[in-house]
């Protein structure tokens, strides 16, 4: 564990907290993409299958990972519940039209071609990594469709992007300190994912500087 990894994880937790705060305080999920949330649910449930096989008390890191995995899975499920049941009437279904089946299919094909080992567990893990790298696209697409972005929604995406950026620093750190060399899959997909956020960052920082609400072109 290093400071970049811990900082990244904490930003991830903050982003989830912001998302739930936004829904709870405004009693609305307007501006949020249910499709992105569903993709994250698929990502977490295919990646964290090791929850069933790993003893949480194996080490301090395993314990930490287990807590975080359960947190991500449950908050993700809760968000989907809020969007689909409690605040369903505020959900912007008309604009949330990104075709996620293509993303899922592409991630599945890539995972079948590129994986670390030929096991079901490893292929599902690779699938989750590929899918996570593009999971934010429906959300960005929805923001572009509707034009204006609520502050809290932009903070949410900003935190998610920050979390990804810190993970890159974490990988560089581990490359040199632990000589981890076989993580090309996570590194490559993580970099693609961070680049997708970079475009959003640009407009986010521009809107901060001008003290205006964020508007995507």
């Amino acid at each position: 564990m290093n400071i970049f990894r811990l900082g990244g994880d904490m930003l991830h937790v903050v982003s989830i907290f912001l998302l739930l705060l936004k829904i709870q305080t405004s009693h609305s999920c307007a501006g949020l993409s249910l499709k992105t949330q569903i993709l994250y649910m698929v990502v977490f449930s295919t990646r964290y299958l090791d929850l069933f096989f790993t003893k949480p008390w194996h080490s301090a890191l395993t314990f930490y990972n287990t807590i975080m995995k359960i947190l991500f899975l449950s908050s993700s499920a809760y968000t989907i519940y809020l969007m689909q049941k409690r605040y369903k009437h505020t959900y912007d279904k008309v604009h949330d039209t990104f075709r996620i089946q293509y993303l899922i299919a592409a991630a599945a094909v890539l995972a079948l071609i590129f994986h670390l080992r030929l096991t079901v567990f490893e292929i599902l893990w690779a699938f989750s990594v590929f899918l996570e790298s593009v999971a934010i696209l429906p959300q960005l697409f929805l923001l572009q469709e509707t034009g204006e972005v609520e502050n809290i929604t932009s903070h949410y995406i900003f935190c998610l992007g920050g979390y990804r950026t810190l993970y890159i620093f974490n990988w560089v750190w581990r490359y040199f300190t632990e000589h981890r060399r076989n993580q090309w899959l996570a590194w490559g997909c993580g970099t693609v994912q961070t680049l997708i956020y970079a475009d959003f960052f640009y407009y986010y920082i521009l809107s901060r500087k001008q003290g205006k609400k964020l508007r995507l072109p």
Binding site: R5, D9, H12, R47, D50, T54, L61, N65, M68, K69, F72, L116, R117, T119, F121, E122, W125, Y167, N170, N182, Q183, A186
Partner: peptide
């Protein structure tokens, strides 16, 4: 080699 060692991140 233990594959869980490879996936110690979130």
């Amino acid at each position: 080699e233990d594959s869980s060692e490879d996936h110690d991140e979130l």
